[in-house]
Amino acid sequence: KEFRPGDKVVLPPYGVGVVAGIAQRSVSGVSRAYYQVDFPGSRSKAYVPVEAPHSVGLRKAL
Rank of each mutant, 00 (worst) to 15 (best):
A61K: 07
S44F: 15
I22G: 00
G15D: 00
K60Q: 09
H54G: 09
S42A: 09
L11G: 01
G6S: 01
V19S: 03
Q24W: 14
R59N: 05
R4L: 10
G15T: 01
P13K: 08
Y34V: 03
D7R: 02
R43W: 10
R32S: 08
L11Q: 05
Y35E: 04
S28T: 05
A33S: 12
L11W: 06
V48F: 04
V10N: 05
V37G: 00
P53R: 06
V10S: 06
G57C: 07
G29D: 03
G57P: 04
R4V: 09
G21R: 12
K8Y: 13
R25F: 14
A23M: 14
K45V: 15
P49E: 05
E51K: 05
Q36R: 10
A61F: 15
P12G: 04
S42H: 09
A46F: 10
S44M: 14
S28Y: 09
Y14S: 01
V48Y: 03
F39M: 03
K60S: 11
V48C: 07
V10C: 12
G57R: 04
A23Y: 14
G41W: 10
D38L: 14
V18I: 11
D7G: 02
A33W: 15
V37T: 01
S42L: 12
K60M: 12
S26Y: 12
E2D: 10
V9C: 06
Q24H: 13
V56Q: 07
K60L: 15
G21Q: 07
K8N: 06
D7T: 08
G15I: 02
A52M: 07
S28E: 12
R32L: 07
K1W: 15
E2W: 11
G29H: 04
K8V: 14
A52L: 07
P49Q: 05
A52S: 11
R43Y: 11
L11I: 05
V9R: 00
R32A: 15
P40K: 08
V37P: 00
G15K: 04
L11N: 00
R59M: 09
L58Y: 02
A52C: 15
L58K: 03
E51A: 07
S31W: 14
G17D: 01
S44R: 14
A20N: 07
L11V: 05
A61Y: 15
V10T: 06
S26H: 08
Y34D: 02
A20L: 10
K8F: 12
D38Y: 14
G29A: 02
S55R: 09
H54R: 07
V18S: 06
V10Y: 15
F3C: 15
P5H: 05
P53I: 11
R32W: 04
V18E: 04
S44D: 11
Y34S: 00
K1A: 14
I22C: 06
G17Y: 02
S44T: 14
P13W: 09
Q36P: 00
L58M: 14
P53Q: 06
V50C: 07
L62W: 11
Q24I: 15
A33Q: 12
V48M: 03
P40E: 09
A20H: 08
R4T: 07
V18W: 12
V30E: 09
A33C: 12
G21A: 11
P53F: 09
A46R: 11
V56W: 10
E2H: 09
L62Y: 13
A52R: 08
G21V: 05
